[in-house]
Write a protein that binds this DNA or RNA. Structure first.
Lengths: 122, 122
DNA sequence: TTGTCTGTTATATATGCAGTATAACAGACG
DNA sequence: CGTCTGTTATACTGCATATATAACAGACAA
């Protein structure tokens, strides 16, 4: 999996990492039980401090995407809880509102949603 | 329209304001040409500094949602450009990825999208 | 004209977050 | 024992957030 950071991007590095790993997991580029690179390893590859990578892994762990193992490092979780639907809805409503303001109707909005959903699966 | 801020929320105040106003416009709580409260007025009502409100209005202006008029203040724009579809897709893909990780399929995802779209319209 | 509203601009300051740089510790393992 | 893993602690710089003033120019009503 190719992970890259954009220092011109306004969102913080640890968030960019977290997002890209989530996209990678969704795309099936990781098997459940597979290990991510160690925090020091990935930090060295990206040229950032290992605390920054550690923060990304901490987020992913808190959200249930990975499990931290002292031996194997960060491991892709087998079962991921689906409790955070509340936050998903909140973000979706904001995106829907932005679309509505620009004259996008429900049908077109759903077409865009479906298109992007399928694009995630590589 | 009721605007409130949550100081416990991690996202900055100016962003909370911006988001709520976008939701309000999408819900049809403002007519095109209608004025928002002045920056000093809204700041006083919310108990924040007027620079914070000014920043929200500046964002909304840059994004084409409102037009700044020295006489009438912040005015809801009549025509809103729909160029930023790229950013919409980027955010949608991330939300889709999070849903996929939690075992949500395309049909269910689209159902959630449609539900939230309709909820925006009051 | 004067007073008051509007947005705009310019400073200054306090606070917290992002990111880096070290250092040190404990567990696992060959 | 040496080396890998994650974890914790501390300190520092830079930037964003948010506040607090102050002042300016245009619009407009009394």
């Amino acid at each position: 999996m190719i992970i890259s950071i954009d220092t011109l991007n306004t969102s913080p590095i640890y968030e960019q990492l977290r997002d890209q790993i989530v996209l990678g997991i969704a795309a099936g580029q990781f098997e459940a039980g597979e290990s991510l690179p160690s925090v020091r390893r990935l930090a060295a590859d990206l040229g950032v401090n290992f605390h920054t990578v550690n923060k990304s892994y901490r987020m992913l762990c808190d959200e249930g995407y990975i499990v931290m193992d002292r031996r194997k490092g960060a491991v892709i979780a087998g079962e991921m809880p689906r409790n955070e639907e509340l936050d998903l809805s909140r973000k979706l409503r904001l995106l829907a509102a932005e679309a509505i303001c620009r004259g996008i109707g429900e049908d077109e909005f759903l077409k865009i949603c479906g298109k992007n959903f399928r694009e995630v699966l590589t």
